[in-house]
């Protein structure tokens, strides 16, 4: 077992600066609970007891288009998958936006758009601008894994006026993830164009990461990355139990809460009720938000339909 890090955690709780040695002790500690307490102290200073969540309706970029009314609880319509070309990306966004009405439309990964643009930053900038003009509210993600020129990436986002919902760590776990977290923490101005860091692996590693490893990654993300506002966990990817526990380890935003139920994944009531119950059960106040990270007015009588 590692040395006692309680004094370091107490410094964080008291809002004091940590020395290099303090940081080293904290990061090297195998005391998961102490790490959680430290991360929780930091997240509470930023977000108090608020946990935001978004209910997402997914639309594959090359699949069937949306039909019928958008369920009123939808906070975001997300175009998923990799577009085949500049034109298909823009056309898909245009079509979804036309149907989604007031609900923000997001989608695409930075790396995919970069590839579609032939890794040419001018063409990428044009594509991002066209997507924005077509109504894209936010880019889906920027993966830190494999991103060769973060400054350039952030610059092209800034110049095209597009913000990204989240920075991800791709498939990274363990020391690789920790190294990426440190890199993200050094990205200047990232917080102006990326709202969240989603520190858990997007694609399940094999063998799967453990609960300890996941929560350690969430806590370290909150502790080390102070240039990004929110630490995000994904309700659909990691399941309600882990996502809920992660809220006590520094996460403050829950992504990808489904619009409709999914009994095979453990939900036994409507996802909206279930996420609220889980956030409250973890000791926080649930705040529904939309795809622009704006808090939603949850008047149960208000119906949001396509085209409104």
């Amino acid at each position: 077992m590692s040395e006692d890090v309680t004094p370091v955690v107490q410094k964080l709780v008291d809002g004091l600066q940590l020395s290099e040695a303090d940081w080293a002790r904290l990061i090297g500690s195998s005391d998961l609970i102490a790490l959680g307490m430290a991360a929780d102290a930091v997240r509470r200073r930023r977000h108090d007891d608020r946990v935001t969540f978004v209910q997402v309706l997914e639309v594959p970029v090359d699949g069937e288009q949306l039909e019928g009314p958008i369920p009123k609880q939808t906070g975001e319509v997300r175009v998923t998958g990799c577009p085949a070309s500049h034109a298909t990306a823009v056309a898909a966004v245009r079509a979804v936006v036309a149907h989604a009405g007031a609900v923000p439309v997001t989608g695409f990964a930075f790396a995919d758009l970069d590839a579609v643009s032939g890794h040419d930053r001018n063409r990428l900038g044009t594509l991002l601008g066209d997507l924005r003009a077509a109504g894209l509210a936010q880019l889906g993600e920027v993966s830190a894994e494999g991103l060769r020129d973060p400054d350039g990436a952030l610059a092209v986002l800034r110049s095209s006026g597009v913000t990204a919902a989240r920075v991800t760590l791709g498939t990274a776990t363990g020391d690789v993830a920790l190294s990426l977290i440190r890199q993200v923490a050094s990205w200047e101005g990232v917080g102006q164009v990326c709202r969240c860091l989603a520190p858990l692996p997007r694609v399940g590693p094999s063998p799967p990461s453990t609960g300890y490893a996941d929560l350690r990654q969430v806590a370290l993300a909150r502790l080390l990355v102070d240039n990004i506002e929110s630490i995000q966990v994904d309700w659909s990817r990691y399941g309600p139990k882990l996502a809920q526990v992660a809220l006590t380890f520094g996460a403050d935003d829950v992504d990808a809460v489904p619009v409709a139920g999914g009994e095979n994944q453990g939900w036994r009531r409507s996802p909206g009720e279930e996420i609220r119950r889980n956030i409250t059960g973890a000791g926080f106040t649930p705040v529904p938000r939309d795809g622009r990270f704006e808090a939603l007015d949850v008047d149960p009588g208000s119906e949001r339909r396509a085209g409104h």
Binding site: T210, G211, L215, L242
Partner: peptide, 12 residues
């Protein structure tokens, strides 16, 4: 009942 991840967290 809790799955492997929360099951492992029981150890903390």
């Amino acid at each position: 009942t809790q799955g492997g991840k929360v099951g492992q967290l029981s150890l903390a």
